[in-house]
């Protein structure tokens, strides 16, 4: 259904690291004693996106939009229902991750890593920093014990922790520091790609800002490519080069950050930006805010046509009848709305 061109191994542009086409993840709904298949929860439905080398792609959406699932599917933490995931390895070889088995994926995992939201549950409490940060090296057979120790100490320094802490256990650290341990671990094998899943959402304001700066420094230092998943629009505007907006398992809009925030093309993007409470009381008093009606629909029973139409203030008859495709419009932006060109929506930037 996507109108994006579907690249093959040969036609992937040189600057693209990840190319996802028609990604789908359905969970079967089973009923009755015999577990009869009665339908699907379409957690991810037809997601297509490209991530360029060295850029940060932000993925925003509310809970249940499937933004984390997209990242986990790309890293093959789950099996996908359908779709193509092309990945450019560091030796420029192009692989379709969707076709690989778990065992075949293992060597590739060195090149793509993930940072988790919860700094408490994502570190094994029974392992020291040496074991935690060094584990990827042990798994991939990189270096002997002494080399691993040196590398771990170096990584701790890189993320702003003291190398003397190498024999400590995670319980000795605060949330923000634990997040840094997770970052050090993700960096251990020099990956080219890191998916940060709500990486600073659980942290206090002052600590979140420190960690965001760290992530940006590391990107510059190591030429990393980020997929930055968050529900915080202010954060995504700050860190991302391009942003994708997700709603109910579908990408609604993808655009360069500045364009998205100054001139959104999808009504949902507009509503999302209007809903964010701003730390600006005077502005809030003058800003017109019409809260979105209703709540996100149930993925097991999505609305017909455009999944956003029941809440959309601009919805017309066509919206409930036809599913809009993710189309490429002027300026290289993509949007999934029948009336993107006709609407004149308001962004967050004045």
């Amino acid at each position: 259904m996507s109108e994006l061109p579907i690249p093959n191994h040969a036609s992937l542009p040189d600057d693209v690291l990840f190319s996802v086409r028609g990604l789908k993840k359905y969970f079967p709904i089973q009923a009755g004693w015999l577990k009869k298949h009665v339908g699907d929860v379409k957690a991810i439905d037809d997601v297509s996106l490209d991530i360029k080398k060295g850029e940060t792609l932000g993925l925003v959406g509310e809970s249940g939009s499937g933004k984390s699932t997209v990242a986990r599917l790309m890293l093959r933490a789950y099996d996908l229902t359908d779709g193509q995931i092309l990945f450019r390895r560091s030796n420029n070889e192009i692989v379709d991750l969707s076709k690989l088995t778990d065992r075949e994926m293992r060597p590739l995992r060195a090149e793509m890593q993930m940072i988790f939201q919860d700094p408490y549950s994502s570190l094994n409490p029974r392992m020291t920093l040496l074991e935690l940060v060094g584990e990827p090296m042990v798994i991939h057979g990189v270096g002997n014990a002494g080399e691993i120790k040196d590398r771990v100490a170096e990584l701790l320094k890189v993320v702003g922790l003291r190398p003397e802490f190498i024999n400590r256990y995670p319980h000795a650290f605060s949330g923000g520091q634990r997040q840094r341990i997770g970052i050090a671990r993700a960096l251990a094998l020099n990956p080219s790609f890191i998916a940060a899943d709500e990486a600073v959402s659980a942290l206090d304001v002052s600590v979140a800002a420190q960690n965001i700066n760290l992530l940006q420094d590391l990107q510059e230092q190591f030429g990393l490519t980020y997929l930055f998943i968050t529900h915080d629009l202010g954060m995504v505007e700050h860190i991302a080069d391009r942003v994708g907006v997700m709603y109910l398992g579908r990408l609604m809009e993808v655009a360069p950050t500045e364009l998205l925030f100054s001139k959104p093309l999808h009504p949902y993007t507009e509503a999302l930006m209007a809903a964010v409470p701003q730390p600006d009381p005077r502005g809030n008093r003058t800003r017109k805010r019409v809260p979105l009606k209703g709540e996100i629909a149930n993925a097991a029973n999505p609305p017909s046509g455009c999944s956003f139409h029941p809440r959309c203030p601009y919805a017309q008859a066509k919206c409930s009848a036809e599913v809009p495709a993710l189309r490429t419009v002027a300026g290289g932006r993509q949007v999934r709305c029948h009336f993107a060109e006709e609407l004149s929506l308001v962004g967050a930037v004045a």
Partner: peptide, 19 residues
């Protein structure tokens, strides 16, 4: 230190040192 929507705060967020 809060990233604000629609406001360019430069590449680095001003932070509070320490924790």
């Amino acid at each position: 230190s809060i990233p604000r929507l629609g406001v360019d705060q430069g590449r680095r967020l001003p932070t509070i040192p320490g924790m």
